[in-house]
């Protein structure tokens, strides 16, 4: 793995609902970036002791994009970075992951930031890619334009029915048996592959709990774990994800993840949402 520290330059900062899409010139990180990886961004203000972990939304030859929701003072500061300003990044961190051919992607809200790069990479290489994208309400479905530019089959789901289907993303995953009846009645697109596709998910804890319930223990699914983090390199062991084996133990999300095999996770011992 190759990590670097790079002072990136903000090229664009565009609104996307209540979030911001930052486009940054970052030659070395862009060159090394792989789907599911993340950067640690230094908050551009005094008094912040920890960098903020941010998924690499997408990467080109010389640029990366970060989709950031201002959920705290630190992310708020990052969201206010203006074009021309610099941003101190380290990364890219986290493991690469070979996406199984038959995967279906599931995102919840801002979680689309964690899987867009993988989805786009699959679509750009001509693979058939599908996304079930859920949110509480239509305003929290982000990256509409970027998703529209990809040849990807997107199923939108909102809890309040304000956009797309009404319900939870976990209920509308094509190829998952317990979602089958709903799928039939909603008359989703024909040509659905056989069930038991791999599921790759990024979203809030509640979505993972719902997925765990629906998919059961034997499903092939992978969850992108977003944890409070400090170093990004596996040294400090702050970003602990509880695992089943050995009983009572943990892995570091930055080192073993951020995408982890959900079957290995001890969902009952998860920490609180960040």
């Amino acid at each position: 793995m190759t990590y670097v520290r790079e002072i990136a330059t903000v090229i664009a900062n565009d609104a996307d609902g209540d979030a911001r899409m930052l486009r940054l010139g970052a030659l070395r990180i862009a060159a090394a970036a792989r789907p599911f990886q993340f950067v640690l961004a230094k908050v551009p203000a005094a008094g912040f002791m920890l960098r903020r972990p941010l998924s690499i939304f997408d990467a080109g030859d010389e640029e990366i994009e970060l989709l950031i929701r201002p959920v705290s003072e630190g992310t708020g500061r990052l969201c206010r970075l203006a074009p021309g300003e610099s941003c101190d990044l380290t990364g890219p961190f986290g493991r690469e992951f070979d996406v199984p051919e038959d995967s279906v992607f599931v995102a919840g809200g801002i979680g689309v930031a964690g899987i867009f790069f993988a989805l786009a990479t699959a679509a750009r290489s001509g693979r058939k890619a599908a996304l079930v994208y859920g949110a509480r309400t239509g305003a929290q479905l982000y990256a509409g334009r970027q998703l529209g530019d990809l040849a990807v089959d997107v199923t939108s789901v909102t809890e309040d029915g304000s956009s797309g289907l009404k319900g939870l993303a976990a209920d509308f995953i094509p190829g998952i048996p317990s979602a089958e009846t709903k799928l039939m009645s909603r008359a989703l697109k024909e040509d659905l592959p056989p069930y038991r596709r791999a599921v790759i998910a990024c979203g809030p804890r509640a979505m993972y709990v719902a997925l765990h319930k629906i998919l059961g223990d034997d499903a092939r699914w992978y969850a992108l774990m977003e944890e409070r983090m400090a170093c990004g390199v596996g040294a400090c062991r702050s970003c602990a994800v509880p695992v089943r084996e050995p009983a009572g133990s943990y892995v570091a999300a930055c080192e073993e993840g951020p995408l982890v095999d959900a079957a290995a996770v001890d969902w009952g011992r998860l920490g609180e949402e960040i």
């Binding site: 008094g47 002791m49 409070r228 400090a230 400090c236 702050s238 602990a240 509880p242 050995p246």
Partner: peptide, 25 residues
């Protein structure tokens, strides 16, 4: 012997500092 460490969350930002409870994993 190996120690598993504490339950997460293990780290919190504080004024001019960081509070950790990694638990000597």
């Amino acid at each position: 012997e190996p120690w598993p460490g504490n339950a997460p969350p293990r780290i919190a930002e504080a004024p001019a500092g960081v509070i950790n409870a990694v638990g000597l994993e």
